[in-house]
């Protein structure tokens, strides 16, 4: 009885994948913030960050028009031709076909869609799988799924993994991103454990992702670091390179650069590209572009020089 309790399941999993010290992680990531990135290295970092953005709109009020304008922004974030397009747009499944219509079939910008009853995941598996298939059929290149946090917290790890495997199958060739929703797992130990559960099911090049952006706490340097270290350990152990996507809460270029420094110093050069690292964000894009222009011209420009900038000045 004892050995079958959820608590014992957690104990076994933690023992297997190792624990995380909260204070130690916070100390480690505080060092990234003290890095001082200047000149050419700053420009490289900013442009690389632009190329890693999954430009996202996930609102009840999304319309085909809004999605069309998001796609245009993703293709051409600024008049400056040296600024790359973003990695992808990220939309609800019902918007995938509209995005595909705008982007066409021959495009550098991929279409990601949050399927599986995002953000709660609280729908029958059959429904969730149907949603994934529909999104892929409509032209989604990437599927962002949520894990079953209820099952995870109840210690039913096999159920969590089975569901990921089922979604993976429904994805076909589409890339899968597994959202752990870290704010609902609460501890760094649980985030590390959940990362391993997901990584053991998914394929090379698939992602683990911090959060939906729909809860109070999203991507932080701390949970990003825990997941990067899990990816590193999994890679050194199996040779399978899993990609990473922090999402939500990254609003400034400075933050984005700090996250990239974490990637550089934890996983190394092979992860410093948009097949292995993404930012799930929207407002960060204009700040990145603004900083790029500032590096080039030496002056900050008014927000109205940047398309889609909604903030006042």
């Amino acid at each position: 009885m004892l050995a079958r309790s959820p608590q014992a399941a957690f104990r076994r999993l933690f023992d297997e994948v190792g624990s995380v010290d909260h204070v130690g992680i916070e100390e480690r990531v505080a060092k990234y913030g003290t890095r001082s990135i200047k000149k050419a290295s700053k420009l490289w970092g900013l442009k690389t960050a632009v190329s890693m953005v999954d430009l996202t709109t996930l609102e009840g009020k999304d319309t085909p028009g809004k999605v069309a304008s998001l796609c245009q922004k993703a293709l051409r974030p600024h008049d400056d031709p040296s600024i790359p397009s973003t990695a992808a747009v990220c939309v609800y499944p019902s918007m995938v076909r509209h995005a595909r219509r705008v982007l066409g079939s021959d495009t550098a910008v991929r279409i990601a869609s949050v399927a599986t009853a995002f953000p709660s995941g609280q729908a029958p598996l059959k429904t969730r799988l149907a949603e994934v298939r529909a999104a892929v059929a409509d032209g989604a290149d990437e599927i962002d799924m949520v894990i079953n946090r209820g099952a995870f917290l109840a210690g039913e790890f096999a159920a969590v993994q089975d569901e990921i495997a089922a979604v993976l199958e429904a994805c076909g060739d589409a890339t899968l991103k597994v959202i752990l929703e870290v704010s609902e797992l609460e501890t760094y130990d649980a985030i590390r454990a959940a990362s391993f559960l997901a990584m053991r099911v998914i394929r090379e090049g698939d992602f683990i992702k911090t959060s939906t952006g729909k809860t109070s706490l999203n991507a932080t340097l701390g949970n990003n670091q825990v997941m990067l270290e899990a990816i590193r350990d999994h890679y050194l152990d199996t040779g399978i390179a899993i990609a990473m996507k922090p999402a939500g809460g990254i609003r400034t270029a400075k933050q984005a650069l700090t996250f990239l420094i974490a990637v550089k110093e934890t996983l190394g050069d092979a992860w410093l590209n948009n097949t292995r690292y993404r930012f799930g964000a929207s407002s960060v894009l204009n700040d990145l572009v603004r900083q790029i222009e500032k590096e080039k011209t030496g002056a900050y420009q008014a927000p109205y020089y940047f398309s889609e900038a909604a903030e006042s000045y």
Partner: peptide, 23 residues
């Protein structure tokens, strides 16, 4: 590290892809 299944053992690359300028 021992190579497995003919593949080279996985290693991390800490190279100069993103060199920091002097600060």
């Amino acid at each position: 590290p021992v190579a497995r299944g003919g593949r080279p053992a996985p290693e991390l690359i800490f190279g100069d892809l993103w060199e920091f300028d002097p600060a």
